[in-house]
Design a protein around this nucleic acid. Sequence first.
RNA 1: GGUUCGGUAGCUCAGCUGGAUAGAGCAUCAGCCUUCUAAGCUGAGGGUCAUUGGUUCGAAUCCAAUCCGAAUCACCA
Length: 591
Amino acid sequence: MSISCILQKSAITSLHQLYGLEFSEKDFQINQTKPEFEGDYSIVLFSLVKQLKLSPEAIGQDLGTSLVKNHPELFVSFQLIKGFLNITISDAYWLELLTKQYNDICYGKQPMNDKKVMVEYSSPNTNKPLHLGHLRNNFLGWSVAEILKANGYEVFKSCIVNDRGIHICKSMIAWQRYADGATPASTHTKGDHFVGDYYVKFNDAYKAEVAGLVEKGMPEAEAEKNAPIMLHTQRMLLDWEAGKPEVMELWKKMNGWVYEGFDSTYKKIGSDFDKTYYESDTYLLGKDIVNEGLSKKIFYSKPDGSVWIDLTAEGLDEKLLLRKDGTSVYMTQDIGLAKQKYEQYKIDQSIYVIGDEQNHHMKVLKSIAQKLGLPYADDIYHLSYGMVELPTGKMKSREGTVVDADDLVSEMIATAREHTEALGKVKDLDEAALTLLYETIAIGAMKFYLLRVDPKKKMVFNPVESIDFHGFTGPFVQYTYVRIKSILRKQPMPETQPLEAALLPLEKDLLVQLEQFPAMIIQAGKELNPSVLANYVFHLAKTFNGFLAEHSIANAESLEKKQLRLWLAVMTGNVLQSGLQLMGIGVPERM
RNA sequence: GGUUCGGUAGCUCAGCUGGAUAGAGCAUCAGCCUUCUAAGCUGAGGGUCAUUGGUUCGAAUCCAAUCCGAAUCACCA
């Protein structure tokens, strides 16, 4: 239990002893004491005034005295300033924390809680390469999964690959028409980019055909429907659904190229999945649920045979679930897949990491599940994140302003190399170690940059700012870790002795922050928000650097101080490493 | 038009379950490398927390209205 929780519980007990009244956590707040005042944690007294009909000063005096009397080993003194009761925690408490936890790799991790969660993220289309938006999604999903693990959940990472449909046929048609047998290997192109290029070629050809038809006097809307290449593509989709061998073969071949490309990108950015679903396997799911809904009269048929649900009472609209020809739509298969996940993995919660443009869809999905009375309906959670924009505005594929994931990774690695070479601190490392180092820095910078903001909010990706390795960045935190490692390599650990000397303010600041790490993990898990950790880890690194500028470890005033500071360094290093790890960011030993 | 989300320093963002003089980073300016990695540290300037009203001992935070911006409201996925 964190010290602020202990303080709150103790205060509740003291208030009961003093005034005979029951209070709860909601009745008063505990804050960290502002640096300009003496003390570590503050109890805000105002909210108690009304209930106790006493002045804040009187309450503070009573409460402070009682706390110190009841727990002299924890609370050594108090100061009463305006309506704030500032409590000073004993050095013994902080020293004990350090002694017990300084070298515990698992510090901050919560015990297993028997709950199972699935986190679905990434969800690529197999007709184009991954871009910046996918990166935010991947980093978020992976990090949230790790954070949940640290909170004691059993977590399954899943991915649904959008590998079928009209858009996939588009690149297939274009390849048939224009590739003349070219392959990723023959053109030395990464498979997903190769296929993506044909998707672009399709759109160019389609546009040209539409323009041609319009020129001949056809209205635009009609031209869009009747362009030969589009009709051709639609025929191919029907052939695909009928399982026509040559279409299936082409489809498998081209998707294979894409997967090869995706695999190498995923490997580079450190994304992985416990289970991959393919839409080609799941797109027929959910039809049994439609029948169930019809028999329960939750769904209804229209005269043309299509099946709908009326959600107007929920403030939503009517939603189609089965077309008149009996084929299912996006929503139908999502309902089916939700059920499959629940049944296969016995999960208690299903988290979907999907952009906020699908808020409506996910709300409808959950609402349908609830209406059907499905047992897992309430456990469907949409982790909705905002779009990534550029300083010039939104990314638009039509205008070629989409930031490609692979390009970005290569640029970041190149920048990391430049920086590192310019500083010249690791000239003695061999080529393999250097390659690893550049990747660790580059990927760390990208992940930190995309995870440091609240996922719910849309964010601006500034290419210039993103390659800055100073300040509120991943490399800054990594660098702090590297400094710690460097010190620990050079300073032998003195023989352990009990710590008793009084803590200096900067030493205590560090301990106060280290003590908050478990609470941060819990908060990040509750909010499904890695930015909590990004902020925390940055502050901790900042505090450590400040501490290091002021106090020497090698030439500490005494052997005891040296041991204390080495332990502080070890623990700070561990916490930085764990915190970064929860964001998918690795730490180098040198940089 | 309906629904949802957002508006905090020049820029990017914290803070939002109400609490002390609103914080970081970048950018700008001024300092700090014969001692543990300067990808660092210290300091300065920079704010009508969109606007107005309300609730409260106390509001960036809660409520209402207004203004501005975004997403969405497909027999696409």
